[in-house]
Amino acid sequence: MDQKDRQIITALQENGRLTNQELSEKVNLTPSPCLRRLRSLEETAVIKGYTAIVDEIAYGLPITAFVRIRLERHNEESVRLFERKVQDTDSILDCYMMTGGSDYLLRVLVESLEDYEQFVRSRLHVIDGIAAIETSFAYGTVKRASRFPRVHDRIRS
């Protein structure tokens, strides 16, 4: 991936609805090579898809919870079971494997505190092998970026 590919990605992260003509003008390429590069980025799964960024509150999911999970055991079966349950749970938007005191960090969206309680009781407590659940609630957002930071191309010798 070179700087031109990164320019294409940055432009699409700013506005994923750009036409190829608009994109090519933004990154200073003619339309044909721009489209070839874009298709290559899509085919190699550098660009994994396109989506709309939706306001959680306007959508009706005003509560964001960050849930730290610690597993009792770290064997293959316990990990696979937990990760499969996470994949099958719509309320969990993101799940990260972590270092430190927690094994996983989940980002969960719910309608209310009562819904969060129900989520914990019906979705998390039923998963075998969870040793601890700790929750923090976000009461505001300071920054939420959809654009990656700039990466400097390294000079290769």
Rank of each mutant, 00 (worst) to 15 (best):
L93W: 06
R150I: 13
H152K: 13
L109V: 05
G140H: 08
I69E: 03
E83S: 04
V108Q: 00
N20T: 15
T99S: 12
L109G: 04
D115T: 06
G100K: 07
M97L: 09
E134R: 10
E14M: 07
P31N: 06
S136D: 12
S24F: 06
Q13A: 01
T141A: 06
S146C: 11
F82A: 07
L105V: 05
I8F: 03
T64A: 11
E114F: 07
R73D: 13
K85H: 11
L106A: 02
L41I: 02
L35M: 11
D88Q: 15
A132G: 02
V142S: 08
E14D: 07
L105I: 06
G101A: 09
S24R: 03
Q3L: 12
T64F: 03
A58E: 12
R121W: 06
E42K: 14
V142P: 00
N75A: 01
R154V: 13
I47Y: 02
I53W: 06
A138E: 00
G129T: 04
D94S: 07
M97Q: 10
E43R: 14
A145P: 00
A145I: 00
L109K: 14
E76D: 11
E134S: 08
N15S: 06
R147A: 15
V142F: 08
F148E: 14
R107D: 00
P149L: 09
R70M: 10
D5H: 06
R17A: 13
S32D: 10
L12Y: 05
D55M: 02
L81K: 12
L18R: 09
S102N: 09
P33S: 01
H74W: 08
V151H: 11
G140S: 08
Q7Y: 11
V120R: 12
V151G: 05
R150L: 14
A45R: 10
Y59M: 08
P31I: 05
G129D: 02
R150V: 14
Y139W: 11
K48T: 15
Y96V: 04
S91F: 08
V110C: 05
I47T: 02
A65I: 03
A65D: 10
M1W: 09
L18Q: 09
E117W: 04
V108L: 03
D103E: 03
E114R: 14
I127L: 01
F119C: 03
I57Y: 10
T10Y: 12
E134P: 00
A138H: 01
A145N: 13
D94Y: 12
D94C: 03
S146G: 10
R39P: 00
V27K: 02
D90E: 14
I57D: 10
I127N: 04
C34E: 05
